[in-house]
Design a protein around this nucleic acid. Sequence first.
DNA 1: AACCGTGCTGGGAGCGCTTGCAGACTAAGC
DNA 2: GCTTAGTCTGCAAGCGCTCCCAGCACGGTT
Lengths: 336, 336
Amino acid sequence: MTDHLKRQVTLDEVAERAGVSRSAASRVINNAPHVSKAKRVAVQRAVVDLGYVPNATARALATQQVGAVVLAISSDSPQVFADPFFAEVVVGISSVLEETDLELMLMLATSSRAQTKLEQLLRTRQADGVMLMSMHGDDPLAHLAEKADVPVVFGGRPVTFEPQYYVDADNRGGARLATEHLVAAGRTRIATITGRMDEGAGMARYKGYQEALAVAGLDASRVVHGDFSEEGGARAMRQLLAEHADLDAVFIASDQMAIGSLRVLKDAGKAVPGDVAIVGFNDITSARHTEPPLTTVGQPIQSLGREMARMLLGLLAGETPTPLILPTRLIARAST
Amino acid sequence: MTDHLKRQVTLDEVAERAGVSRSAASRVINNAPHVSKAKRVAVQRAVVDLGYVPNATARALATQQVGAVVLAISSDSPQVFADPFFAEVVVGISSVLEETDLELMLMLATSSRAQTKLEQLLRTRQADGVMLMSMHGDDPLAHLAEKADVPVVFGGRPVTFEPQYYVDADNRGGARLATEHLVAAGRTRIATITGRMDEGAGMARYKGYQEALAVAGLDASRVVHGDFSEEGGARAMRQLLAEHADLDAVFIASDQMAIGSLRVLKDAGKAVPGDVAIVGFNDITSARHTEPPLTTVGQPIQSLGREMARMLLGLLAGETPTPLILPTRLIARAST
DNA sequence: AACCGTGCTGGGAGCGCTTGCAGACTAAGC
DNA sequence: GCTTAGTCTGCAAGCGCTCCCAGCACGGTT
């Protein structure tokens, strides 16, 4: 703690040094009109001489704009955020925010204390806008957000309703792609391990699977519900094997679960893709390094973040953006 | 954009409804002394009746405290942040911040614009404190931070100097552990693929390797410098194989590089760990899923974040914390 | 010569909150 | 009963900035 006290340079000092009024100085800082060339230059000089930087707080108070948006992750477990997924989203968001004067605040609303904070935020305009990723089913926050006092864009869609503004990945389309891929490979007894059915992504991927099989005229009853986790995937695969010993392929709603499944399959002496073909979802880094490398569905995660930010910016600018669904694509590797 | 306009409830309204002065109301909000029980209760009632939430901006202006700290990642590439490492750090940080009234702001200082922003932040107290992770060598920001106008704690140490407040993982110790493990396994021609030598972690891990071999009286000249990336690891391994065909083990400064190396080793027909034993660093998730699963050094990443936040909190409270070095540990798997 | 833009200019009133301070009031202490 | 200390209480002065507004100067119209 050196000299945290040497007071900040204020607008008044700048004005004085430049020999103009505070109002005039303010105008040139925000380069507003109605300032003569001469004064404008004088102020600019003073600014660099003094090393003036506007006080964001004071400005915020005066303009009633915070100058910051928040990315809120509402979830029941703090660990979800450890998922690299979010790191990527953040990179996307931050890449577009970087070109604005907005700061990014992060809220991991996992404890009830944090949830309350988020709620208040939504009500009381402590941020100019929020990007909300709500992970579990009927999150009350999600509803609250819809009628919030501040613009909200959703990342992903809750299961229970369709928010007004959101950007989502085409989970259903991706799942269909994956399943069709299995069909095209000649598999006929195609099972699925779903994600959590109280999450939008889990539900959508399951629907995609059903659609593809319906089109192909195949049986879509080999279903076990998982939870997106590796351990859950292993469990689900054991159950699948027990209940549907005849399966020759399975579409698994996340790579993590696929990895768990692979282990079980190996222990059970099933060859992949010989006996059973596997396709996962997400294209996490690990998917390239499994044995065999995992065929999976990739989604443009950074774009997701980028588009969320852009949409929010649009909202802040008074536009009325339309929801966005980002394409997913099949990445064929050795597990099919 | 519904009715973002219904004005906020202010302290004055609370005071009026409670029949007290604004000062009194303020005191109970901040539960300061010198308020009679009766008025205290009255104000509290008014607060809930009105749904009052203090305006953070106004408070910040009055108290000269922002109520937020920032996590800044200074780097030349935006992609570094995509590393799950940071997601974990953030989880740690946010878990301790959650119990305070501080918000977390994120700055990925990757463009020069963002760098400038960070610089100003450091000078002008736009945050109450900052946690800085500076990735590349002689980052001018790092020096700037040391004499900043606001408390700064470093995550990891720059190569060029030792900051006053930091928390770091015991990279050197971990590397020593890893190398000793190789020695203990009877390997004698132990090479290393280092990380970037302009990063603290890269340097420290290299030193640890050297130390261990010195103690064991073994040759420490089988060295190739990598860059922490998977591709770089592959490249380095090819070079290593070409220059030191006799090696029987290699300590690789990151799991990513180890993964790249594994591929090269396989192509070269070398068995792991039969012909050459491998140990990585970081214990990323993928490390469990390589073929064979990777022996590696794990570091307590969430703790790193947690301790950074705690240290910053201490600083804000006027304490003078001492730097912290977190232990790393060897995780033995099948590659050794 | 009276009149009307048009573009600058600075004064000053906020934005919502904290806090030093002086006054009022209460409870002891002698 | 009067001082002394102690506890409330509200006034008012900020925190640093924005922005409305009235005032002014200047040049061009009638």
